[in-house]
Amino acid sequence: MKYSSIIVEDLQTAADFLKKFCERSGLVEVQGHFLNAEDALIYLSENLVDLIFLDVEMPGATGFDLMDRLVYTPQVILTTSKTEYAYDAFQYNVTDYLKKPFTYQRFLESLQKVQVKKEEEDSNSERDHIFIKSDGKLIRLKNDDILFIESMGDYVKFVTAEKKYITHNTIKNLETKVDPMRFMKVHRSYIVNLSRIDDIQENSLYIKGTMIPISKAHKARVMQKLNIV
C-alpha cells in the first residue's frame, strides 16, 4: 500500500527532490504540489491524504497555520531550513522534522517513522477503551462512556456522564490517539463522541445539556460524519 501525500513547498527545487525521493521509495504517491498553504487547504478540504510534506515559511500562511486549519489529521513531515521550529513541531505532534536539504537516507528514516505511527494509530483504533493518567494513576475509560474531551491549555478534561478527569495532554495529540470512527474534533478545544451527540443547532452541538461549539472549519466534516436521513 502506498501513502497518498501532498507537498506544500514554495521552493521548486526542494519539491522536485521530494517528488523524486517519493517515487524512488515506491512507498509514497504524490497527489499534488502546492506553493502555499492556502492552495493546499483548498485541496485538503475535498481530498483525504495520509501524509503532508509541509514547509513552514511560505508566502502567506505558514505551515503551522495550515495545521491549525486542518479538519482531519494526516501525518505531517515538516520540511524546513530552520531548526528553531523544532519545539513547535513537537507541540503539533508532527511525525518528523526534516532540515533542508536532506538526503534520501534521511528521507527513508522519516518514512519509517510514518509507518510506526500508522501502526500505532491502527492498533489504537481497534480498542474499545483508552487509558489516561489522572490523580497519579492510570484509569481505563471505555470509549462509550466518554462524552467529550475539552482542552484546558496544557491539560485536557475527559467528561463522562459520572465524572470528569483532568490529565496532562493536548487535543492535537489526542486526535491521533482516539478511535477516529467514534470521536471527532469539532473545534480546536473539543473532541466529541459522535454517538453521544443529542442535537445540533447552527454552530453548536449538545451532549447531555452541555453546549459545545463547532468551528466553521470543522462544520462540513461534522455534518458529513453524522447519519442524517
Binding site: D10, L11, T13, A14, F17, E57, P59, S81, K82, K100, P101
Partner: peptide, 13 residues
Amino acid sequence: RKIFHRIKPLFGY
C-alpha cells in the same frame, strides 16, 4: 529576510 530564507536551501542542494 523571507527571500533569503527561501533561497538558503539552494546552497545546500
